[in-house]
Design a protein around this nucleic acid. Structure first.
Length: 205
DNA sequence: ATCCCGAGGG
DNA sequence: CCCTCTGGAT
């Protein structure tokens, strides 16, 4: 898919430039993704580093003082709910011997993990097929004319039909990142968008 | 003043 | 379906 190939070029390899991508470890990526809602990617990365510097393993995080976890994740917003979810997920993963599950069913059964988070972990951490469709990706897909649907599951299926399953990992976070940084809800930055020339919604000055 | 945003709960 | 959680951005 041309669109996705261009995004891969626009956000090249340097993993640390991509939201959450520096957390190659499945558990760290899972936690970073839980923290990522309604929060800049820089802040997610900073907080996730703080959290794992203090609590390096699922076991240590599961045993953490909830108030200390709340304090650390505070800058990401929704801090009480997120801290509670991080603790619950840590307990669940610790009980599994530290292994993050690798199927959609098992992942979404974890507390605080929905389809978007599961698709990030599946595609990025495990190389399994999956594309996270959050509001950023939904908006981007609509503007590009890739979907008419507003249903994230339908959008996911439509996007999947264009992407080789083994390529979803490198693209997952780039789609989100492009939606956040360029194809923004309010003031889309079309002049700096690598897709502007093939986007039916692009407005150039 | 209102929106943002993913997950879960009612 | 609708609501809540948070503080920061607009």
């Amino acid at each position: 898919m041309e669109i996705l190939r261009r995004l891969a070029e626009a956000y090249p390899g340097s993993a640390r430039d991509l939201c959450e991508l520096e957390f190659a470890d499945p558990f760290q990526l899972l936690v970073a993704t839980i923290l990522s809602a309604q929060c800049t990617d820089e802040r997610v990365n900073m907080v996730t580093r703080d959290l794992f510097a203090r609590y390096p393993s699922p076991e240590s995080l599961a045993a953490a003082d909830p108030e200390e976890v709340e304090r650390i994740v505070y800058p990401t917003g929704f801090f009480r709910a997120k801290a509670a979810n991080v603790l619950k997920v840590s307990t669940a993963v610790a009980e599994r011997g530290g292994a993050v599950p690798l199927t959609m069913d098992e992942l979404t059964r974890l507390p605080g993990v929905g389809r978007k988070t599961a698709n990030v972990v599946l595609s990025v951490a495990f190389g399994e097929p999956g594309l996270p469709v959050d509001t950023h990706v939904a908006r981007l897909s609509k503007r590009l004319g890739l979907t008419q649907s507003g249903d994230p599951v339908k959008i996911e299926a439509e996007l999947m039909s264009w992407v080789p399953p083994e390529e979803t990992g490198p693209l997952s976070l780039r789609l989100i990142l492009h939606g956040r940084r360029v194809c923004k809800a309010k003031k889309p930055d079309c002049p700096s968008c690598v897709l502007a020339d093939i986007c039916p919604s692009a407005t150039l000055p």
